[in-house]
């Protein structure tokens, strides 16, 4: 008897879910693919200008009529918090309904990929998550901080004084705290899908930044406005030899599948530093545009 009830309830619930999906994410027969840009660590109120730059966004979106959304959330928070993942889901949901979007194409940078992975991995935490998972056809994760970074450890360890309470110094925040190597290992083991043997429900393609060029004789070094060589040399030494100046390659590639490493595809075989991988440097914008 109870099983027939469960079956009845299930069909009833399926109807609700389907009607919500149809009502919210359009009932059109043809697909409307929306592009969502998800920023990295930081509290953004105008990420299009302050994080990505209009030049980059406009270049990626040129030549197609897809609607796009640039997320503005508080990614100083832990990824599971309302001001992070729920904020992201809410902005996508409202925009998706308004624009009759049926498919989602994510472009994330750095820690933004972790927030998206939280949603993809934990569908029962919010009613919008399963709708987003169902609509998602692609995640392009540029330099994702999937495995954390020893530099986050350095920031945190270098800021916790015996007598201090909370984050008194530097750029330490809950988000930086979580991007410490052992914290991300914990998250990957228990809460985030995408690592080996724990497949995500959607394609998660990684673009890996492998190096930083800082030669004063190479104008390419200045794309992205990052040029302090001695500081770069220090952070590069702190990390493994394969890194984008913030993340080691192994960290970027620990979740999802590697789409390409920068030097394989970028113009002139240039590497993408962590700052350059959210700018229109070396043809990255064109590659992303062609993929949409």
């Amino acid at each position: 008897m109870i099983y027939s009830y469960i079956k009845w309830i299930r069909s009833w619930r399926m109807l609700i879910v389907l009607s919500v999906l149809l009502a919210s994410f359009s009932s059109q027969v043809f697909a409307v693919r929306g592009v969502v840009f998800v920023h990295g660590t930081g509290f953004q109120t105008n990420a299009e200008v302050d994080y990505w730059t209009p030049n980059f966004i406009n270049s990626v979106m040129s030549g197609n009529s897809n609607p796009y959304l640039v997320i503005n959330c508080d990614f100083e928070e832990y990824i599971w918090k309302n001001r992070a993942a729920v904020c992201l889901a809410d902005q996508i949901y409202r925009w998706g309904v308004a624009n009759k979007v049926t498919e989602l194409h994510f472009i994330t940078h750095s820690n933004g990929a972790n927030v998206v992975r939280w949603i993809l991995s934990n569908p029962t935490w919010d009613f919008r998550y399963p709708i987003i998972i169902t609509a998602t056809k692609n995640v392009t994760a540029i330099a994702p901080s999937s495995g954390g970074t020893p530099l986050a450890n350095a920031v945190i360890n270098g800021n916790i004084f015996e007598q201090s309470l909370g984050w008194l110094l530097g750029y330490a925040s809950d988000a930086v705290f979580l991007q410490q190597v052992e914290y991300m290992a914990f998250m990957n083991e228990f809460w985030l899908l995408g690592t080996q043997g724990r497949a995500l429900p959607v394609p998660f393609k990684v673009i890996t930044g492998t190096d930083v060029e800082s030669s004063p004789f190479d104008s390419d070094s200045y794309c992205g406005g990052y040029s302090n060589q001695v500081a770069l040399e220090f952070t590069q030494n702190w990390l493994n030899s394969c890194s984008d100046g913030f993340l080691e390659c192994s960290s970027q590639e620990v979740a999802g599948t590697v789409w390409f490493r920068d030097k394989q595809v970028m113009n002139g075989g240039e590497p993408l530093s962590h700052q350059q991988s959210r700018r229109a440097c070396f043809g990255l914008d064109q590659v992303l545009r062609n993929d949409i």
Partner: peptide, 22 residues
């Protein structure tokens, strides 16, 4: 050794009140 001043290290975006020596 090489030194990295606080203002130089701050350009990385990760450190704000740190200097480095290596």
């Amino acid at each position: 050794s090489k030194g990295v001043a606080e203002s130089q290290l701050a350009q990385t975006g990760f450190f704000s009140k740190s200097t480095a020596l290596f």
